[in-house]
Every structure is written in structure tokens, then in C-alpha cells.
Design a binder for these strands. Structure first.
Length: 517
RNA sequence: GGGCCCGUAGCUCAGUUGGAUAGAGCAACAGAUUUCUAAUCUGUCGGUCGGAGGUUCGAAUCCUCUCGGGCCCGCCA
């Protein structure tokens, strides 16, 4: 059973009980949701429509019977509508009491139960061969927002950044740095970016450390902190790469051909077999990555989540196959594939390549539009969608960017509460005077917050939170225009509940909730 | 050739475990401030949900085909 708000849980229980009285115990397909329009009530269920067929009954008739059996002081009335929907009209008192509960819960408002399990979330994992670019920014923001989302939903989450600190790429980096210092041209397949000349350090290791530390500084400025940075070299040092390969060998999943050791992924649905150990005896990136996953599994998490760019999507099948072949449960591993970011300057796409050196760094974007707008912008779109990031627009919009709209609502609230002073601190739980449409809309929107958190966490979609933030700000601003607050204790309580909810929304997104703007 | 993702208003995007009349921001136009923050609000304009079939009481959402765009198919990482 999905975790839901108390409000929805209660409605579900009522509907389930009524259905059960009519002989329906199968709840498959039965949904309870917010009504699309207020004339249709506050919440609605398709229970009668879905169940009618199982009973060979007319939906409208069944709906009428259900409506007669659903009785609660939660709502004033239940109406039956067209195809067979049941529309619930919530009782004012119930809504008001629920809103009063928000203030009591404060920072806990919207949080799930604490014991949902342990999750390891890996994201960004950029190579330490150059500055983070805009694409990394998307994963940094989305990954961090998902981590916060899952924590809010009740999971214990650790976040990890995998550092590929050995191998061809880093050798090429060092060669490129040396060439640049000697005034020589960029080596074959080397790195030609302008930053190469700036890299500090007198050894390969020092260069890597200096690049990594710049990446970390950028991430910190963005407000993204990792539980740990995990070095690929540690896997080799601890013998885990050999361990991963020998596990596959032991399970008969390898074959030696042309001098190389291959993982027999073809027989597990992959297009072809994959090399684990090259003919020269060195392990591939793939082998190290398997060791990394072996290590993650050994650490006892309930679930492992990786966020990868779509350019790695073909890699999913072979990693899952290998995990299974190592004798580990593949269903614990969840891989989120996100679409890439295309950078525009006006109508002109900006090509990004470390090789040619033409790129826009995450640091530059941060310096230009700031962490709050950067975070909101990246968190606001579905990772399944390709993102066109227009630098000029992002900069230009900085004054009517949605993030400021949401923050402004919070600042406005704080201003009101400050002005109300002592009056605002006179906490009375009597909200019974809140009966105007604008007040009701605001209260209902506030009460939806726990379900927004649950839904967004379950689907790993932080953009649902930004959407909710925009909606809540809109409803609040509307309320503000209609209803004078100061001098009305009940409204002050409602405003405080709005403040708490907005703050929790922004907190969940890692965006500041300013008290003044 | 095979695979994954996307296609919704002029622009950027929400809306998919199938629900009722498809939404918002920006842009454009017209308004609102003796009143708690105008970074706000109200109204107008704007749609063959890429296209064609199919399933269903019901499709932007699911299936098939098709068109368009992005990405992948290394003994690179």
C-alpha cells in the first residue's frame, strides 16, 4: 500500500469499507484524487466505475449505493456524477482542523515515517579531467533534490560521487597538461580546453586533486554536498575488481577469446559479450564499475540508485546482467536515465566539448544566475525530457523567474507576520471563520503537500515539487489579494501554515526561503 | 540496421499506474495600488496534444504503424 496523507488514507478506508459491503474487495484501478474543478467537489473517486464491471452493474446505480454507505464527518456530502464518479465535498471544520495541524507539525509537516529503509544514491560522478559543465549541473541538482525528497519521505539516504581517478582519461589529462606547459600542441585525443593551462599540480595525482577540489567548490556553491567521494583506485587497491571478475568466472559467466576475458552478457539479453580484461591484462572501466556495484551491495543498502545521462543508457542492460551474474539481486539496483542539456545563447546552440575546449562551465552559470535560480531551473523539468538551456533567457528572466515568484510569496508572508507582531503570536486554534473561497482554496492546496512529497518521491521526480511550489504561491497571492489578514486571527494562522508549507517546499528543493526581498 | 528518450499555445514547459470542459509561466494587448511587500493581482488573445489506425464507458496518457528531433550501439571512461 502506498504511503499517503492522513486525509487520503481516511478517504481510502471509507471507500474500501463501502465497497467491501457491496462485495468488492479488489481495489485494483480504484483511485482517489483531487477533483479537477471545485464544482465537482474536493476529492473524487472512480470506485463505482471500476467496480461496476466486476459486479456486472450499472456504474451510476452502484455509485449511488456507495454514496449512501460512505458516511463520515470528514465531508458534508457525497455526490454522484455522470459516468459514475463519487465526489466528496469536505467539511469546513475538518479542513480547518487539518490546517491547524500543519502549525503543530511545523518542520515535520509533509515528512513520512522514518523507517523506510536505506538508500545509496550516486550521481554526477564526473571525470576529474576538467571543470563541471552545465550538463553536470542538471544531475547535481536533480540528484540532490531526489536525495532530499527521499529523506523527507522517510528514507535514510547517502549520496556518492564516483571519481574515475585512474585509466586512460586521466593519463591523457596529465599528458595534455605537460604538453601545454611545454608550449607543445595538444596530444592525440588529449584535452584542449583553456583550463588545461590553469591546472595546478606537479604530478598526475596533484592535478587530479586540484581539479576535483574545484569541482567540489562549485558543487558546494550550488548547495550540493555528498556523503562521500568514492575513488575508483580504491576498488583496485582493495582487490575488488579481481573479486568481481572471479565471481563471474566462478559462476561460469566468462569466456576467454582473442586473449581477453569477456563477460557472457549476450546470453543474458545483451547485444554482445563485453570485455572485462583486455588482451594486455588490464581491466576495463566496465570491470571496475562492476566492482563498484559489488562494493555498494556489500554495504547493505535496501536500494541502490544511479543517475546516468542518456549517453550511457546502453550500459544499463549489461550492468544489470552482470550484477545478476555475480549473484546479487538486480531489483535492488535502480538506474535513472536523464536526457541531456543543450546549451543555447539566444538561438545559437553552444557546442560543448572538452576536447575543443569550447564549453560553458557550471561555475560560470552559477556566477551568472546564482544558486537558487540554477537549482530551480534544473529541478523544474522532467529528467526524461531533453532540456534546452538558454543562457540569455536564464539571465534575462532572473527578475520574473518562477523561483522568485515562490520566494516572494514566502517573503510576503514573513512581512505580514512581522507586521502583525504580537497579534500573530496569539495562537488560537479557532479557524472556523475561514469560509471564503480564496481561503478554502489555500487550505486545500496546503493539505495536498504530503501527497505531493509521496508522489514525487515514489516517482523520483523533484519537478513535481517545483510545480507544487508555483501553484501554492499562486493560490497564496490570490488569497492575499482577496483577504486582508492583519486583524483576523484565523487568517493569521492560515498565513502561518502557508509559511510553514512554503518553507518546507523550498527547503526540500535546497532553495533559500527569504524573509524579505 | 538495432535500442532508449522526447514531440502539448508564438516561446519554455506541466499534465501518463487511462477519467469529467487539456493547464501555467513568458511574450502580446487591456486593466487594478488612499489598503498587510505591484518581484503581486484581474481580464483578453492564443490548441488538429506531430500524423494515422486500434483498445476502452472514457485516450495527451495504453498498443501498432508512421513523421520529426536528441542520444547510444569501443579491448574509451
Amino acid at each position: 500500500m502506498r504511503r499517503r496523507s492522513r486525509l487520503l488514507q481516511r478517504l481510502e478506508a471509507l471507500v474500501a469499507a463501502a465497497l467491501s459491503e457491496l462485495g468488492v474487495t479488489d481495489l485494483k484501478g480504484v483511485k482517489i484524487d483531487l477533483s479537477p474543478r471545485r464544482e465537482l467537489g474536493d476529492y473524487a473517486t472512480n470506485a463505482a466505475i471500476v467496480s461496476a464491471r466486476k459486479l456486472s452493474r450499472q456504474p451510476l446505480e452502484l455509485a449511488a449505493e456507495l454514496a449512501a454507505r460512505v458516511r463520515s464527518d470528514m465531508f458534508d456530502r457525497v455526490e454522484v456524477a455522470k459516468p459514475g464518479f463519487l465526489n466528496f465535498f469536505l467539511n469546513e471544520k475538518f479542513i480547518q482542523q487539518s490546517v491547524a495541524g500543519i502549525i503543530a507539525q511545523d518542520k515535520e509537516w509533509g515528512r513520512g515515517t522514518k523507517d523506510e529503509g536505506r538508500i545509496l544514491l550516486e550521481f554526477v560522478s564526473a571525470n576529474p579531467t576538467g571543470p563541471l559543465h552545465v550538463g553536470h549541473g542538471r544531475w547535481a541538482v536533480v540528484g540532490d533534490a531526489i536525495a532530499r525528497l527521499l529523506r523527507t519521505a522517510g528514507y535514510a539516504v547517502e549520496t556518492e560521487f564516483y571519481v574515475n581517478n585512474i585509466g586512460n582519461q586521466v593519463d591523457k589529462l596529465w599528458a595534455s597538461v605537460q604538453a601545454a606547459r611545454a608550449g607543445q600542441p595538444v596530444p592525440e585525443n588529449g584535452y584542449g580546453g583553456a583550463y588545461i593551462k590553469e591546472v595546478k599540480g606537479n604530478s598526475k595525482e596533484e592535478c587530479l586533486a586540484s581539479i576535483l577540489s574545484e569541482q567540489q567548490a562549485t558543487l558546494k556553491q550550488l548547495g550540493v554536498e555528498f556523503t562521500r567521494f568514492f575513488n575508483e583506485s580504491d576498488l583496485h587497491a582493495k582487490g575488488e575488481v579481481k573479486e568481481a571478475i572471479s565471481r563471474l568466472e566462478k559462476n561460469g559467466k566468462t569466456i576467454v577469446e582473442e586473449g581477453a576475458v569477456w563477460f557472457k552478457s549476450e546470453e543474458m539479453g545483451d547485444d554482445k559479450n563485453r570485455v572485462l580484461v583486455r588482451a594486455d591484462g588490464s581491466p576495463t572501466y566496465f570491470a571496475a564499475d562492476l566492482a563498484y556495484h559489488l562494493d555498494k551491495y556489500a554495504r547493505g543498502f535496501d536500494r541502490l540508485i544511479d543517475i546516468w545521462g542518456t549517453d550511457h543508457h546502453g550500459y544499463v542492460k549489461r550492468v544489470k546482467a552482470a550484477v545478476e551474474a555475480m549473484g546479487l539481486p538486480p531489483e535492488k539496483l535502480e538506474i535513472i536515465i536523464g536526457q541531456l542539456v543543450t546549451l543555447y545563447r539566444g538561438n545559437e546552440p553552444v557546442r560543448m566539448s572538452k576536447r575543443t575546449g569550447e564549453m560553458v562551465t557550471l561555475q560560470e552559470v552559477l556566477d551568472e544566475i546564482g544558486p537558487d535560480a540554477t537549482r530551480f531551473f534544473f529541478a523544474a523539468s522532467d529528467v526524461n525530457s531533453h532540456l534546452d538551456f538558454d543562457l540569455e533567457l536564464a539571465k534575462k528572466q532572473s527578475n520574473d523567474n518562477p523561483v522568485f515568484y515562490v520566494q516572494y510569496a514566502h517573503a510576503r508572508i514573513c512581512s505580514i507576520l512581522k507586521k502583525a507582531g504580537d497579534e500573530g503570536r496569539r495562537t488560537r486554534d479557532d479557524l472556523s471563520s475561514l469560509n471564503e473561497p480564496a481561503e478554502r482554496e489555500l487550505m486545500l492546496k496546503l493539505l495536498a503537500w504530503p501527497d505531493v512529497v509521496n508522489g514525487a518521491a515514489r516517482l523520483r521526480q523533484p519537478h513535481k515539487v517545483t510545480e507544487y511550489g508555483k501553484e501554492l504561491a499562486t493560490v497564496f497571492h490570490h488569497f492575499y489579494e482577496k483577504c486582508r489578514v492583519i486583524g483576523n486571527p484565523a487568517r493569521l494562522l492560515l498565513v502561518d501554515a502557508s509559511r510553514i508549507t512554503l518553507r518546507n517546499v523550498l527547503e526540500l528543493l535546497g532553495i533559500k526561503a527569504p524573509e524579505a526581498m
